[in-house]
């Protein structure tokens, strides 16, 4: 029930943002109708679970995103230096890192964080580990990735 309310509020906010009309009764009526229809369909299809409405991650995930922004910035500078270098010093390699989060949302968040950081791309996600392709030795820092995984495990909230 809580997830349904969150979904209704999120959809209503999205409608208001995209339409921008707050005083036309007809348009607001259409908005209410479509929000309720979409929420009812989601409830009826029984897809309202921790995967579709990951409410347990908020608000801690916002702090994680803020931290991740700086990691992405640092990695971007390193990759851009390689792309501009006359003689790029690449040493690509494949390695595995453990995937500590328990929930599927947490696992997906960690894999996406790896891919989002330039210089590391998650190639194959298994149940408990991720195969990662690193661009250089400096960027493919296994300890840093392990620390990132533990950070995701801390913010993911209670297991679903």
């Amino acid at each position: 029930m809580g997830r349904l309310i969150i979904l209704v509020l999120a959809l209503a906010a999205m409608w208001l943002l995209l339409s921008g009309y707050f005083d036309k009764v007809l348009l607001l009526g259409f908005g209410v109708a479509s929000v309720l229809l979409a929420s009812w369909l989601a409830w009826r299809a029984r897809v309202l679970d921790s995967d579709s409405v990951p409410a347990a991650m908020f608000p801690r995930v916002l702090g994680y995103w803020f931290w991740l922004t700086f990691e992405i910035g640092k990695a971007n500078i390193m990759v851009m230096r390689q792309a501009l270098a006359v003689e790029p010093k690449l040493s690509p390699k494949l390695f595995t890192v453990p995937n500590p989060p328990r929930s599927t949302v947490g696992k997906a968040t960690f894999a996406n964080s790896i891919t989002l950081t330039p210089g590391t791309v998650s190639v194959h996600v298994r149940e408990n580990e991720i195969l990662v392709h690193g661009l250089t030795d400096e960027l493919a820092d296994e300890d840093a990735l392990k620390a990132m995984g533990e950070r995701v495990a801390r913010i993911e909230g209670r297991p679903a």
Partner: peptide, 25 residues
């Protein structure tokens, strides 16, 4: 620079990283 890396890097997996620069930063 990301697009330049997409052209310059030697193989498929390394090009993924260059595309990542464009997609994020």
């Amino acid at each position: 620079v990301g697009a330049l890396g997409l052209v310059r890097f030697p193989d498929f997996y390394t090009r993924l990283h260059a595309a990542g620069v464009t997609d994020t930063a």
